[in-house]
Amino acid sequence: MKSRVSLSPASPPPVSSPRVSLPRIALHAFLIVTCLVTLAPLVWALYASLRTYDDTARNGYFSVAESLTLDNYSNAWTQADLPHYYLNTLLVTLPALVLVLLFSSMVAFGVSRFSFKFNLVLLMLFTAGNLLPQQVIVTPLWRLYLLTPLPEWLSDSGVLLDSQVGLVLIHVGFQSGFCVFVLSNYMKTIPHELSEAARVDGAGVFRQYWQVILPLCRPALAALATLEFTWIYNDFLWALVLIQTGDKMPITSALQNLKGTFFVDNNLVAAGSLLVALPTLVVFFVLQRQFIGGLTLGSTKG
């Protein structure tokens, strides 16, 4: 069982040993060039972020830097009050992530492991919901949020609008479509006999889900967690519409604060942007092993 869902093939196929051959060199050359081209924009932004405003204002961006400095980073850090907004984002992203994975794995479990009347309809509903454009939802959602009261201890605005709870909820609702789709595909590849055995042992539905199926989905969950983290983290529109207090904005929207209305220091914005991108980069590189493994989506092997 384990080998089926793990990422690396137990023994790599004995392809021709990597000797130095002409095609090999050409392949590496091609890949190196492609990588460099891919990285160029980021490197360019990084370069700009290390230069002073005076330097680039006088010499232009396409020039050798007079000096390199980390000042833009410390300025962006304090000027945009980044720690505060990192925390805002964290407090939205983590609960949303946990809930969306929990909810969608429950639904996926239901639709993929049991057969009932609305089985397929439910799956279709989630999958199609995931394809809806955000803009189709946003206006009535705003009204709904304005009209839904929340106790003061849950939201100081007294309603779902302008509360982080509301932001978490819409992320959960909106993202669960994609996750249900992926997870149900994945769960279908898990042999039915497993939960059957558990059932015979007297395990209830919830135990089958929690102790048998869920642990086996770990690679898919890891892959989804990575993807969903970047998606929720990078969200721009929900917060723009549903949050009204500047202090509650998540970091992606707060980045705007660095862009002056009348005066724009691109170097500073570049530094801020890279700082904002940092968490997604870290998460990605930490989880990349699980990611590729999990993304097989269980759909190719049938």
């Binding site: 407090l91 609960p95 809930l99 849950l154 509360s163 982080q164």
Partner: peptide, 12 residues
């Protein structure tokens, strides 16, 4: 999870 969210309001 969500239970921790209310704290936000106080902080923000």
């Amino acid at each position: 999870g969500i239970a921790a969210v209310p704290g936000l309001a106080a902080c923000g």
